[in-house]
Nucleic acid binder design. Structure first.
Length: 282
DNA sequence: GTTAGGG
DNA sequence: CCCTAAC
């Protein structure tokens, strides 16, 4: 919506299509065409057209050479009927110039993330009657498709936008893990990403997982902005070190069961005596 | 609320 | 990134 609006300079018109043909904005058109009956949803779609009554600033953010002939009111895009599909267009902040980061701390990356894109559902009702009328008439029909990303509480929880880690962020993550290890993601977050509100400790844990994987595959199989080999080396080193460290801790607890009698009783004895102990680590 | 892992 | 069983 944002991208299209930018391209059209604010002039946007949405029309409802039925089997490829434009549907007039009548109150009864949709009913007459039988959309409300059965599953006619496959024939539904919509098109986006520039509004001829407005100027065309040709303002393309990001320097994208994308251009459209503004003289023809032809549909810019036509989507097949996909009820429940919520397409979100957001600018990728990963291509923005990096600030001179201080040490190993990630700045509060432009958190302005996705503009809520909240269409006040009571304001647009004036112009597009037909568009609003559809879901109002066949609510049950629309419900059969989504069945996903919709936690049956009629809440359409939006998936967070994808935000590739910048090299600077990877640097900060690596440095923090080198210091704290791979089992204290909460601390890692506080230490190196306290200002990056969009990075949760779970995100950091996940990123570390992919970093280890990235470091192991060949450079040709890697995607996204290349991470300096030097960092990937440190990832493998840190991963090896803390893995070993973690193994030692578990081995230690295994050798001194009397120090953890309660755990011993509830775990080892209860499971199997003939087992002779816990699992053997490679 | 955190961890730890599979999805 | 998401989802969540286990702390």
């Amino acid at each position: 919506m944002e991208a299209v609006t930018a391209i059209l300079g604010g002039g946007l018109r949405i029309g409802v299509l039925l089997q490829g043909k434009k549907v007039r904005d009548d109150n009864k058109t949709l009913l007459q065409t039988g959309i409300s009956r059965d599953n006619q949803m496959d024939a539904l779609g919509f098109s986006l057209e520039p509004n001829p009554s407005q100027t065309f600033p040709s303002h393309c953010p990001g320097g994208s050479p994308l251009k459209f002939p503004c003289d023809t009111p032809l549909p810019l895009a036509r989507y097949p009927a996909t009820p429940g599909l919520v397409t979100r267009v957001a600018h990728d902040p990963s291509h923005e110039p990096h600030m001179p980061n201080l040490g190993h701390f990630v700045e509060s990356d432009n958190d302005s993330a996705p503009s809520p894109t909240d269409m006040s559902l009571d304001k647009s009702t004036t112009d597009s009657k037909a568009l609003v009328a559809v879901p109002a008439m066949s609510v049950e029909a629309l419900d059969v498709v989504p069945a996903h990303r919709k936690s049956k509480r009629s809440e359409v929880v939006q998936r967070r936008i994808r935000r590739p880690f910048s090299v600077a962020e990877v640097e900060a993550l690596v440095q923090a893990v080198e210091k704290l290890g791979t089992g204290r993601w909460r601390d890692v977050k506080l230490r190196a990403f306290d200002n990056a509100k969009h990075r949760t400790y779970v995100d950091l844990k996940d990123k570390w997982k992919t970093l280890v994987h990235t470091a192991r595959i060949s450079p040709q199989q890697r995607r996204g902005e290349p991470v300096p080999q030097e960092l990937l080396d440190r990832v493998l080193t840190a991963h090896a070190y803390w893995s070993q460290q973690q193994a030692k801790q578990q081995l230690k607890q295994q050798q001194q069961p009397e120090s953890c009698l309660l755990l011993y009783n509830s775990t080892v004895r209860a499971s199997s005596r003939s087992d002779g102990g816990e699992k053997n680590f490679g």
